[in-house]
């Protein structure tokens, strides 16, 4: 196509200029500033001094950081598959037009419009000892209530439950959309072969929406690595740090301990991890779909 009007012209760049300004000033510049900051011993209230890579070595040697890293990886490793599997299940179940299914679709997406503080408040009311919904139910049936928010193991689980409840809408919707794109004749052929439901699922449906599964997984990995509000508001990272995610570590180091140089170093490490995780996932799965 040799359209003359598509000739390269500087003036065409004017269309992207406004965005580019914001991009440079609010993203690129702070990103490099953050890297610069991570090489300094600085507090919130004034300039610091250059310390080289000390912040990075200290962060990597900090048992609290390592614990937070482990918590975050466990959280991602459990919550992302849960979101994908449940989302897929719901999409398969609700992939038809009836009154009931459209009600359910609306219901499962509705939690996504709530803000994190409302979500955590709701789930705190469920999990808090003594007054919580689960405590009340446990007592009704004669069980000893579990202190969900303050028992190690359960606390991260509780944060995860609230997160899945909150985030399930988007995966479900994306899967539903993908299911609509599966060519109908594939199913018709399968019906002629008298293929079982399971066979149809594994041989036709899943391969057809493989790209969406990868997309949803990557989106969720990136999102869930940034877990912060739920943990801070529900468990405050406790007990003994077993539900403290990486972002909360960054927040604490920067704004509680005033050590923003180290906070910046930790956030660069998080950035790297997210990048690697998303890319690894993408490469692995794109290879799988090719094979």
């Amino acid at each position: 196509m040799a359209e003359s009007y598509r000739r390269s012209q500087w003036s065409h760049g004017l269309f992207i200029l406004p965005y580019l300004c914001f991009f440079l000033v609010l993203l690129v510049f702070p990103l490099f500033w953050g890297m610069w900051l991570s090489l300094h011993k600085a507090d919130l209230f004034g300039p610091g001094r250059f310390v080289g890579l000390t912040n990075y070595t200290r962060v990597l040697a900090d048992p609290v950081f390592l614990q937070a890293l482990r918590n975050t990886i466990i959280f991602v490793a459990v919550s992302v598959p849960a979101l994908v599997v449940i989302g897929l299940f719901l999409a398969l179940a609700l992939n038809r037009t009836t009154r009931a299914t459209s009600f359910f679709r609306g219901l499962f997406f509705s939690s996504s419009v709530l803000s994190v503080t409302i979500v955590t408040l709701i789930w705190r009311f469920v999990f808090i000892p003594g007054d919580g919904l689960l405590a009340v139910l446990f007592k009704q049936v004669g069980l000893t209530p579990i202190s969900f928010l303050s028992t190690s193991g359960w606390s991260l689980f509780s944060v995860g439950a609230a997160t899945v409840w909150w985030c399930i809408g988007l995966p479900m919707m994306l899967f539903l959309a993908a299911l609509q794109q599966v060519p109908q004749d594939l199913y018709e052929a399968a019906a002629l072969d008298n293929a079982s439901g399971w066979r149809v699922l594994t041989r036709i449906t899943l391969p057809s929406i493989a790209r969406t599964i990868v997309l949803v997984t990557i989106i969720q990995i990136v999102l869930q690595f940034q877990l912060f509000g739920q943990a801070q508001l529900m468990t405050n990272g406790g007990p003994s740090g077993t539900s403290r995610p990486l972002v909360m570590y960054i927040y604490e180091v920067g704004f509680v301990r005033w050590d923003i140089g180290r906070g910046a170093a930790a956030s660069q490490i998080l950035f790297l991890i997210i990048l690697v995780a998303a890319m690894a996932q993408y490469i692995v799965s794109s290879r799988k779909t090719e094979a």
Binding site: S150, G238, P239, S240, G241
Partner: peptide, 20 residues
């Protein structure tokens, strides 16, 4: 940093008291 110290002690002593 007495408040930061407080959170560290609370976290660690809490782990000991609750048997973790």
């Amino acid at each position: 940093r007495q408040f930061a110290i407080q959170s560290i002690i609370g976290e660690e002593v809490g782990a000991a008291v609750n048997g973790d």
